[in-house]
Design a binder for these strands. Structure first.
Lengths: 226, 226
DNA sequence: TAGATTGTTAATCGATTAACAATC
DNA sequence: TAGATTGTTAATCGATTAACAATC
């Protein structure tokens, strides 16, 4: 048995992008793709691509490239996306609703099977997904053996709701609030930081407009700056 | 004139989280906060906090901490969020709609003043924001001197629409599609990678459930693994 | 003062990039 | 074969973490 490959977080995050592009290649009939071509398409380096694909355990053909279909299968297997896992969503805010309506998740191994909110009207559904009062969260989590939850409540409730999710047996939380969660270390969380993206955009745009560059000039390499 | 502080991207992305927590502290009457307290709240290291705040140029008081109000002001100024900048949004999909309805952006220096789609009904508005046909994008961008755009169209149209945004004079694009964009290097883009987050969650959850840990055990340090 | 915290320099850690032999 | 590409080891780069003197 070969030693399991150790992944890095940045590499993991790139895998869905490979998958997306490989599916497009497959749809247009490509049977193999060399790493430099993949790299160009995803704006990466060909060595990065080769290292990432090594993780998947699909061998490339020297001088030719990687087999598209096997790679797709390999990435889906690696990510556990061959058959979707079920998740609950809490908080049917505007944003939560959008996630419920996003059919694209099925291609990413995720199936949101129920939503929860404070006081939903009896029998409510959003985009065909039933909405229950949060009081039923624990009961349904246990009965359906749900392990993943998406947190879309308002910031003020985030910690409290997350605590209750953990009590109910949830093991992984995708956190769309701005609140940093304080949970037991064994609970897996992933924080979405849209404001962080916006910060990067804002600062870089301001630099461009005012030309008060605080970025290190990439040109100067050997030179000494006094 | 002091040399401008050079920022790192990870530090930039953390600034909105500081801002969020500092505003909460301010609301509850706190006048100063030491870096270890901030670090605990945001699950960071106190040195990281001090380094990040150095960037802002607000000095802390040795033995006491940092002035809350000045920090808030300093971060908002640094990010250019004192007065919001205006942006356009293209693609009123489920997700685009959610962004249009998200009032929270105003706290982050962003104001979406119009949306665009292929063939919106005459006079349509979403959450009070007018929706125009995409044919008017260029004209309105030039007239209102818009520099930032949010890309929410479907993947197939992403590159084409982004090209037209650039032609219209857009300088920064916040890309919510899964498509990697190929644009002139001077155009600033920020790609939202929700599928990447999901990949991390999926793999870590699978490890937890099946205990086929491929993660390096953080405990073993000096030990040799055969 | 004593205790706590800041600000900064140095050390470590981890990911990306470079280089190149092996191979189809 | 010749040309292109893989797979892997080493070097570089950048961010985090450690350490500690200065200071209120």
């Amino acid at each position: 048995m070969p030693a399991p490959k150790v992944y890095t977080i940045p590499a993991l995050k790139r895998l869905p992008a490979y998958l997306h592009h490989l599916r497009a290649l497959h749809a247009s009939g490509e049977r193999s793709v060399p790493s430099p071509a993949l790299a160009r398409a995803l704006r990466l380096d060909s060595m990065t691509v080769r290292k990432d694909l090594e993780l998947i355990g699909v061998a490339g053909l020297t001088g030719v490239g990687y087999p598209v279909e096997k790679l797709i299968d390999g990435i889906e297997t690696f990510l556990g996306w061959k058959n979707s896992s079920e998740a609950f969503l809490a908080g049917t805010s505007e944003f939560g609703k959008a996630l419920l309506g996003f059919r694209g998740f099925s291609a990413y191994g995720l199936k949101i099977i129920a939503a929860f909110d404070r006081n939903p009207p009896e029998g409510e559904t959003i985009h065909g997904i039933p909405v229950f009062p949060f009081s039923e969260f624990r009961h349904l989590t246990e009965r359906l053996k749900i392990r993943m939850a998406i947190l879309c409540v308002n910031d003020a409730d985030a910690q409290k709701v997350a605590d209750r999710m953990v009590e109910a047996g949830i093991l992984a939380i995708w956190n769309f609030t701005r609140q940093t969660l304080h949970l037991p270390p064994e609970i897996i969380t992933q924080q979405v930081n849209l404001a962080g993206d916006l910060a990067v955009l804002s600062v870089r745009l301001a630099e461009k407009l005012h030309n008060t560059t605080a970025v290190p000039e990439p040109e100067r390499k050997g030179e000494e700056i006094l």
